[in-house]
């Protein structure tokens, strides 16, 4: 495997042996990567081969070894294997029994790294697996202890409980939030890369194309602090590309926006869907509404010669969805369906009636034909007659079907009983 070292220019130099490492340290290198990579060509997360250690960068010049050890005891974590004094604070390393950097392991490792960083209130920008850290110069604590990732799982338990404060926005409106606007106004030298990726995700999530986002962020890069080492446009291009190469379109991490802007920020995603078959319950609900609206538009009773398939096509849904909606409506008693054969070669006619409509129509028609003035007793009369008709129909045809009741009611509302009979 390969590691990388660098001097203050951060240009990565690959290292494969301890002898080279020693030589390069002598030559004045300042940084190294604690984790190892597949090739000498790429110092990127997806090129990682071995995960060797968890580490944090505490940015507090007043922090001491005993502070770190106390915090470890509080959090029920093992003490670090190595604590190094830096100009601005401390670097702490927990050596882990090396883990192959598979996608899964890397995901877990990254979560742990972030959780560890948060638990020590350390610098979140340092919490990436391919990070450069300072070659230890002033070692304050060194213990050859080796741990496993599972020794740190306790950190993940309360991860979900971490408080999110204020400033809620709907994810779609992310770009209008003051915290994001602050980032769009330009950032300092040390957060450019993270800010660029975070903003690229925000743009992508809000529906910007790759080209549009790139234009926005190149313009944004001109607003950034130039610093001693200006952020190159090619780096912006690479970062935007990596955000657009992600398989899923994800909103930016709220924690990053908080960290980079220093402002409270969180959002809710309203489009979130339940597990299992994504989108299915929603589709059913929509279909149900559409279907009921169609029947109501036809006056509460829809009589059609169209097949279920054709009806589904008219509603713009699949036949399967419509079938399950109809079945559910029948089961809950909100809908009655009756089918009439029209005669040789003329196909069938189907009538869908909404139950509440049936009652209302009943009372209305009762009024019209002067039976009880639309009162409850009038409705009951119609139903009783309908039942009588059904029995008669069943006598003649031998058919006994619940759906015929609705059909009889419909006829009785239009014609006198004796004609129906």
């Amino acid at each position: 495997a390969w590691c990388f070292v660098a001097n203050k220019s951060f240009r990565p130099l690959p290292v494969r042996t301890f002898a080279t490492l020693e030589k390069l340290i002598d030559a004045g290198m300042i940084y190294f990567t604690p984790n190892a990579f597949f090739s000498r060509k790429a110092k990127t997360t997806d090129a990682l081969r071995w995960l060797n250690a968890l580490y944090i960068d505490i940015d507090d010049p007043a922090a001491t070894v005993s502070d770190v050890l106390d915090r470890c005891a509080e959090l029920n974590l093992p003490p670090p294997s190595l604590i190094v004094k830096t100009q601005h604070g401390l670097h702490c390393y927990w050596k882990i029994k090396r883990v192959r950097a598979t996608e899964r392991a890397l995901k877990l490792y990254s979560r742990l790294l972030r959780a560890l960083t948060k638990a020590f209130d350390a610098d979140l920008r340092a919490a990436t697996a391919e990070r450069f850290l300072r070659i230890p110069r002033v070692i304050l604590h060194f213990d050859r202890a080796e741990y496993e990732l599972k020794d740190f799982f306790s950190l993940l338990e309360d991860e979900t409980l971490s408080a999110q404060s204020g400033g809620r926005v709907v994810a779609r409106g992310i770009l209008d939030h003051p915290a994001v606007k602050k980032l769009l106004g330009g950032v300092s030298e040390h957060s450019r890369n993270h800010a660029c990726f975070t903003l690229a995700r925000a743009f992508r999530y809000c529906g910007y194309s790759y080209a549009e986002t790139l234009q926005e962020l190149l313009r944004w890069n001109r607003r950034n602090d130039r610093g001693s080492d200006p952020h190159r446009d090619s780096e912006v291009r690479a970062t935007v590309k990596s955000a657009y190469n992600e398989k899923q379109i994800r909103p930016p991490a709220a924690s990053w926006i908080r960290e980079l802007s220093g402002m409270p920020f969180s959002y809710r995603i309203f489009e979130k869907r339940g597990g299992g078959k994504p989108g299915r319950p929603r589709k059913i609900e929509e279909t149900r509404e559409k279907f009921i609206a169609t029947i109501q538009a036809a006056g509460g009773t829809l009589t059609t010669c169209d097949s279920r398939k054709k009806l589904a096509a008219q509603l713009g849904v699949s036949e399967r969805t419509l079938n399950s909606v109809v079945a559910a409506l029948i089961a809950e008693g909100s809908l009655t369906v009756s089918t009439t054969r029209l005669g040789r070669g003329k196909g069938t006619e189907t009538t869908y009636t909404i139950a509440s409509q049936l009652e209302a129509a009943c009372s209305e028609s009762c009024k019209a034909i002067g039976r009880g003035g639309g009162s409850e007793s009038g409705m009951r009369q119609v139903l009783e007659d309908a039942i009588e008709c059904c029995f008669k129909f069943s006598d003649v045809t031998g058919r006994n079907h619940g759906k015929d009741l609705a059909f009889s009611v419909k006829l009785l509302l239009r014609y006198r009983k004796k004609y129906v009979l």
Binding site: R16, F18, A19, R49, N52, I135, I139, F142
Partner: peptide, 20 residues
């Protein structure tokens, strides 16, 4: 020397990833 100590710590961290 600090240099040797640094190398010793790095050897420990990078053990198995780099070769002799």
């Amino acid at each position: 020397s600090p240099q040797e100590k640094a190398l010793e710590a790095l050897r420990f961290l990078l053990d198995g990833s780099l070769t002799e």
